[in-house]
Simulated assay, not measured.
Amino acid sequence: MIRNVIFDIGNVLVSFHPVEYFYPVFKEKTETLCTYVFGSKEWALYDQGILTKEEVEKNLLDTYPKDKDAILYILTHWKEFMKPIMPMKKLIEVLKEKGYKIFLLSNISEDSYLYLKREYPYFFDVDGGMYSYRIKSNKPDKKIYEELLSVYGINASESLFLDDRKENVDAAKALGFHGMIMEDVDVTCDRIRKRLKEE
């Protein structure tokens, strides 16, 4: 029986579409620039709390000096494209009313966490959360999942995990979680309601 529902943050609770957001500024070069930043090992280490934003900036500028102005622009404005996915807010409210425990499990830097908690505090009014920057581990590494289970004393077999990346859902399933991949938001909300109704 599922007692806990666990949500990723990026592209589950808030949008994370940098290419779409920055395209009006950089046009055809947008995808390349966003890969430089958000697809970099530096960004992964930033999420893990191992590198600071300043260190990420320095490393990226050393690597891509010809794109200095564009990278600085992205690093200055990137938080602006994270907007709340409101149907998920409503879903969480309904699940709380029905007695489910709600947790967050996200690869996220401390800067992002503090920004989102300030801008959209309702998403953090939950029973707990595990964030990569706190434990220096990113999904799909099993450490972050196991830490969530240990800290909050919950069972994987009683937990449904929702993430937008298949590899993260697969890692959760390997540890005994129920898993679901975030797709179209309305379809996903309906799937979750149906899945829990079958319990």
Rank of each mutant, 00 (worst) to 15 (best):
A156V: 00
L13M: 12
K66P: 01
F38T: 00
E147T: 06
L148S: 12
E20P: 01
F124P: 14
V187N: 00
M130V: 11
I9Q: 13
V56T: 15
I85E: 08
N4I: 06
R165K: 05
R191Q: 10
K89N: 08
L114W: 01
D8T: 02
K98H: 08
Y145W: 11
S157E: 15
Y113V: 02
K139V: 00
E80F: 08
L61F: 14
T30A: 13
E119I: 02
M88W: 05
L91M: 14
A44V: 08
T32G: 01
A70P: 10
I192C: 09
L60A: 07
L105P: 13
E199Y: 03
K27Q: 07
G49L: 02
I92G: 10
V169N: 05
I92C: 13
Y73C: 00
E158R: 07
S106P: 14
K68E: 15
N11S: 13
K197G: 06
N107I: 08
G153V: 05
S109P: 11
G179P: 00
M86R: 15
D141E: 13
S132F: 12
M86C: 05
S132G: 13
V19C: 00
P65A: 09
N168S: 08
K79W: 01
I71V: 05
N155K: 15
E158W: 05
K166R: 15
L60K: 06
K83F: 10
K96T: 12
F81A: 02
Y73H: 13
Y115M: 13
P18E: 11
Y23N: 13
E28Y: 11
G49R: 01
K117H: 14
R191K: 15
I192Q: 08
K83Y: 00
D141A: 12
E199L: 11
K166F: 14
Y46W: 14
F16R: 03
N11A: 04
P65K: 05
